[in-house]
Design a protein around this nucleic acid. Sequence first.
DNA 1: TATGATCGTGAGTCGACACTCACTTTGTCA
DNA 2: TGACAAAGTGAGTGTCGACTCACGATCATA
Lengths: 210, 210
Amino acid sequence: MTPAKSSSDRTDDPGGARPLRADARRNRERIIAVAEAVFAEKGPSASTEEVAARAGVAIGTVFKHFPTKQALLQAIMKGLLERLTEELSALAAGSRPGEELFDFVAGVVEQAAQKRTVVTLLAETGVDLQVAGPLQLLRDGIETLLVRAQKAGTVREDVRLDEVLALLTGLCHGALHAGWDTDLQRRTLAIVFGGLRGQPDAARSRGSIR
Amino acid sequence: MTPAKSSSDRTDDPGGARPLRADARRNRERIIAVAEAVFAEKGPSASTEEVAARAGVAIGTVFKHFPTKQALLQAIMKGLLERLTEELSALAAGSRPGEELFDFVAGVVEQAAQKRTVVTLLAETGVDLQVAGPLQLLRDGIETLLVRAQKAGTVREDVRLDEVLALLTGLCHGALHAGWDTDLQRRTLAIVFGGLRGQPDAARSRGSIR
DNA sequence: TATGATCGTGAGTCGACACTCACTTTGTCA
DNA sequence: TGACAAAGTGAGTGTCGACTCACGATCATA
């Protein structure tokens, strides 16, 4: 159960070795794209056969590219994380005072409500492996937005990164499983954002939480 | 007013028909108890065989009592909902102004963090069936607390029940999947509770944007 | 205690799915 | 264009888990 010992890994970009044949590269990309759609629809329990079928390849081809279903899921997740990180960079160049963090959270939750991918993958795929790097990058990006928002006075000074991440994952799971409609989603986010903004009227909220 | 009304359900208390043999009743109860523990540990994907083994009965026995794994899950969920509703009633007789709602949410999230049951069942079990009644009762109870909290000025007037439920489920999922420790849990809840309390005017007047 | 209905039993069936491999097809490069 | 390695193929394998059923064990009642 330790596939990660070959000199270079086949499940990702071919570092410095073989350039990957043209048809292979084409198939690999189609498989990832299709798999993302399938898993977004049915969750990670969707069968590899369905992915293969929709991609128009034999199941063996899928397993040639991704030796394990887990590897396929991780490839998708890695792409997703990278996209989110990009989005983060785009927002970082934003105009408004310190609202970028809210925009980002809203965007991710919105996406989570539509696709199972974000949430379920983040939850059910092991995070231990090669996605750790991209995940850290994402975390860093969010932290940047958080600090900026705090400097702008948009978010309470005492809010920490792990709390933001906790809220983010919670909101995503909620949006996914409970199938929030757009309106409910907006209103729920507003409450949470209010909590992030709110003045350290902490006398009440800190003291008497249970 | 007699609550027993369904024509006949085998998976629950036998309303007016057969009294269920002594050994059968004993086994049924042990199975439910054990199943709750097993599913709390491993989630609903745990096998029925494991439940049977830990309960010290043959797998056939489990299926004799609960014709379907789904039925077993629902029986557990029904019990859980009823317990939560009871807890709600207990809180309703509470002393503090309008804090009961917060106490309840904190309690549920706490439980969710420890056991997979609350969350995963609430999410993955179909809610359509015989749990609908208990679920409605729970919802009503939460609404009572919400209204009371609003009358006491503890929660913003414009917060609606579905938002509270959305936050509750989101927080539960977050607590479960991300494995929040007690401290993070407390801090995250504080933020959300702050959002439920805080006047929107104060938060917005600052920048007056958005 | 006898007797019949209710329960319990667990090997077996069925289907789903991840993964393999011997063989064929195709791209690439001399 | 020929030759070979890389890539594709898909029937087959192994496993796991939900659910069944024919039969034996056990409780409740006369």
